[in-house]
Design a protein around this nucleic acid. Structure first.
Length: 627
DNA sequence: GTAGGGTTAG
């Protein structure tokens, strides 16, 4: 009973008057030293019941004192570890340091103590500190000897290496996991797959997955989501098909669930593959998951990114109002914005604001919608009314909005007065605005800033050169071209793809890789002569090469989106909608050509560029030429 | 009892 001896009435009183721990009612006396095992158990149980109610640092300290004075800190490892867990995961910035202080005060910490601290560090804003703790370097000497690690310790450490995309550390932890003999632990190895994927090492993630003899659905989902969010949405869909085609033979623990659907739908959206998206939707229906709110949110996003705003909105409206979440609204607003329906996006934003607090994503989607629809005043009004701190993307939208509207001074002032450093995209936005309105000084300033920030892409040079060209400053045009030649400029290759009968066809500018390239080029020549009758003249100012006018026309004529449209025209029956996806923004000439083709051939053409959709119909585009 | 997988972003 020695261990109860350190508690005194004095310390108990001091703690009691610290306030805050009692849920209600009059002050209850601190428990006196229990004299029986039953009383001790009751005392521990009482303390346990207080744990979930600890919310502030003074309360943590008070509880800490209580553990100290009662002796439980040294004697009751379970209670101590749960307390450590509680403070290590507390959002309060002073809580985690206190947890480490506590850990350091324990003469012989056990694995659970270490794990609590690791878990807290892994979830903190500085996950790398968990590696310092593992290396025994976080706790200043004299620090307690580290206990043996277990599967949980590695799980938290892998979470940390995933959060900081630290592939070498994930590899090291993989080795430790094998040495520790826990390589058959499904949960741990799933975390490993996830960690490899989030570090960008998709090959290792796949290898670990393939070598597992026992998996469950989370393992599949970890790899699927990793591929989808990494650089391999195509492989994600291959994996999904492998799962979906054999799911009836899989054990129940591997049955696909709503997480599987959201990850797969994300891949479909990135690829713009309506065919795959449709397949995933049908599969979700088959499993009875198509009314799950998160699945619906992903469906809204998928349909919108695959060019079908109507289906996106159908799914959104099928979600019962009380089931709609912030993400449901964000996805729907984003869908309307991308498709140029800024007014509808604003109305949906107003509707949601009455009962769901918008976040940064909501505001960005609405602002983007205002931008694409040319709703300058609405955009500025929404921006000024923002109830969250704007980030550089919000400023970017506003700068674009003002710049396109010709309000260049305001756009520039916004950049100079914002409380964040301007990034490359922001200066590119200003450069684009300067080009649009032919303002040389601003273009030069933006180009200088871009060079300072290390941007070296061909688009920057083309814009600057075009500004000079518009003022007939040919010497400067030549100078830009020389700089471009000397600087080893990075050219972002433009490519487009289109889905015909469920098969994706990819085209790169001027490429002849497609098996039917000769037919496609002939069709394009025919198209050009036909739309020339409607007044088409190539807009060659977007080409900056040291080549003659005729060659410029050639370079322009075989832009990837034109190849994709031409192929669509010859590969589909008359009247069918053509859908094209481009990795960059559509160029001005292709935009004119698409409008004329839609009229001359009576086709609806939907083009998704890097930021939005253009729907061409009867000679007009849904963007109203404001993009 | 303690751990794993998810959707929205210029």
């Amino acid at each position: 009973m020695y261990r109860w001896g350190i508690q005194t009435d004095h310390s108990a009183g001091a703690i009691r008057h610290g306030g805050g721990l009692r849920p209600s009612g009059p002050a209850s006396p601190m428990p006196s030293p229990p004299s029986t095992a039953a009383a001790a158990a009751a005392a521990v149980q009482h303390l346990e019941s207080l744990l979930p109610r600890l919310t502030s640092v003074p309360q943590y300290k008070q509880f800490h004192a209580r553990l100290l004075t009662s002796g439980y800190l040294g004697s009751h490892h379970g209670l101590r570890a749960r307390f450590l867990d509680r403070i290590a995961l507390s959002p309060h910035p002073a809580a985690l340091p206190h947890a480490l202080l506590l850990l350091r005060s324990i003469p012989f910490p056990v694995t659970n103590d270490l794990n609590a601290a690791l878990r807290g560090l892994a979830a903190s804003p500085h996950p790398t500190r968990s590696f310092l703790l593992l290396a025994g370097r976080l706790l200043p000497a004299p620090s307690p000897p580290l206990p043996r690690l277990d599967a949980l310790s590695l799980s938290f450490a892998l979470k940390a290496s995933a959060r900081c995309s630290d592939a070498p550390t994930t590899l090291q932890l993989h080795a430790r996991l094998v040495r520790l003999g826990v390589a058959a632990d499904v949960r741990l190895v799933t975390t490993l797959v996830d960690s490899y994927a989030k570090c960008g090492d998709l090959a290792s993630a796949r290898k670990v997955f393939d070598e597992m003899t026992v998996r469950d659905v989370a393992t599949w989902n970890a790899l699927l989501a990793g591929l989808a969010q990494g650089t391999e949405p195509n492989l994600a869909l291959v994996l999904f098909h492998r799962l979906a085609e054999n799911f009836q033979e899989l054990p129940s623990r591997e049955q696909p669930n709503e997480v599987t659907m959201t990850a797969a739908l994300s891949a479909c959206g990135q690829l713009g593959s309506l065919q795959d998206g449709w397949y995933v939707h049908e599969f979700a229906k088959r499993l009875g998951l198509d009314h799950n709110t998160r699945v619906c949110n992903s469906l809204v996003d998928m349909y919108s990114k695959c060019g079908s705003l109507a289906r996106a909105l159908d799914v959104f409206h099928s979600i019962k109002k009380e089931d709609r979440t912030l993400v449901s609204y964000n996805s729907a607003i984003q869908a309307l914005s991308m498709h140029g329906h800024g007014g509808d996006a604003l109305r949906l934003f107003d509707e949601m604001s009455s009962y769901i607090e918008p976040d940064g994503v909501t505001y960005l989607a609405v602002l983007c919608g205002c931008n694409h629809a040319g709703l300058v005043d609405d955009g500025l009004r929404v921006f000024k009314s923002m109830r969250v701190l704007p980030n550089v993307k919000h400023y970017g939208t506003i700068v674009d909005l003002l710049g396109r509207a010709g309000r260049l001074a305001e756009a520039y002032d916004t950049v100079m007065s914002m409380p964040l450093p301007a990034d490359i995209v922001l200066w590119q936005t200003l450069l684009g605005a300067a080009k649009m309105h032919g303002v040389v000084e601003l273009a030069e300033l933006a180009a200088t800033k871009l060079a300072d920030l290390g941007s070296n892409v061909d688009g920057d040079y083309v814009l600057l050169s075009n500004v000079y060209a518009s003022k007939a400053r040919w010497m400067d045009v030549g100078r830009v071209r020389d700089t471009m030649r000397n600087n080893d400029v990075r050219k972002v290759p433009g490519f487009s793809y289109t889905e015909i009968d469920g098969v994706m066809h990819k085209f790169i500018n001027g490429d002849k890789e497609h098996p039917r390239w000769q037919e496609i080029y002939r069709a394009l020549d025919e198209i050009v002569s036909r739309i020339s009758e409607l007044g088409y003249e190539p807009e060659t100012s977007n080409v900056l090469h040291d080549i003659g006018e005729e060659e410029k026309q050639y370079a322009l004529c075989y832009h990837s989106e034109k190849l994709a449209i031409a192929f669509g025209l010859i590969a589909t029956p008359p009247g069918e909608t053509l859908r094209v996806i481009k990795n960059l923004r559509i160029c001005g000439d292709c935009h004119v050509v698409a409008k004329l083709i839609s009229k001359a051939y009576g086709r609806v053409i939907v083009i998704r560029d890097r930021v939005r959709f253009h729907q061409f119909e009867d000679g007009n585009c849904s963007c109203k030429d404001y993009w």
